[in-house]
Design a protein around this nucleic acid. Sequence first.
DNA 1: ATGGTTGCAAACAATTTGCACCAAA
DNA 2: TTTGGTGCAAATTGTTTGCAACCAT
Lengths: 140, 140
Amino acid sequence: MNKREEAAAAHLRTKGIRATPQRIALLARLRSQRAPQNAEAIVRALRGVLDQATVYRGLQEFEKARIVRRVQLRGSSLYEAPGTHHHHLICRSCGAIEDVDVCLPNAVSEKLLAKSKRFSSIEDDALEFFGICKVCSAHS
Amino acid sequence: MNKREEAAAAHLRTKGIRATPQRIALLARLRSQRAPQNAEAIVRALRGVLDQATVYRGLQEFEKARIVRRVQLRGSSLYEAPGTHHHHLICRSCGAIEDVDVCLPNAVSEKLLAKSKRFSSIEDDALEFFGICKVCSAHS
DNA sequence: ATGGTTGCAAACAATTTGCACCAAA
DNA sequence: TTTGGTGCAAATTGTTTGCAACCAT
């Protein structure tokens, strides 16, 4: 096991998830990529190592345990291992994704909670921005 | 045609979309519901009036024309006719959705644009909040 | 006639499940 | 040892497409 895998195994154990080779490989893969990836890409990358079903099962668990974050886009899900909480800027034309580190001011969710009748706490937020990237807006 | 349908037809025409009975019914339905609905619910509600394929085709057109807004959640898409731009607060446990009218401060997207290397404009943003609603947190 | 629109059924893509075998704690 | 995890293939779900019929120009 290389360092990345050892770290992954350790992380899994602290979350109470059994550190099988498959899950270790999956988490290591998620951590090795900076851009969010879809399930298909992960399955392809780990072909021969993990079955498709195992990938999906693993992703579900990881999401529940908050080890990965799931971003819903264009009909399929993308997954990423969150280092820091961040958001995305997505090109409507080519689908390119840029990470952005702006953060939602706390005041926004406080104001929101104050107004809501049915909720008394907020756990998380998802914020995505859409535009056309420079490359696409150049040749169009 | 009732008032809601007449208004829908007029709106379609201003967008350059042919106001067929099917599209009128679809838009009227979208407008009649306050909560975002998924395609399945719309198909069910309009069963016998519109075919499934027509619903999906209509939703795509409407989305392109910005007549409806699409929200990606939990593996499927939800659609709503936007009165005002707003966001959602979603219960992780029961899936209940509450509309919230807080808005992203302009400063956030300005800051974002200033930092981005690959984008020079932002067209839209999607912001969703997740928590546990009072009902669910009570009996758990 | 013409060109967009519809319904139907079949195709497709993404994800989930049943089950027999296998492995980490 | 035993409880949970895995691979395989089939099933399901959500959505899209091909095509012939249709309707309003």
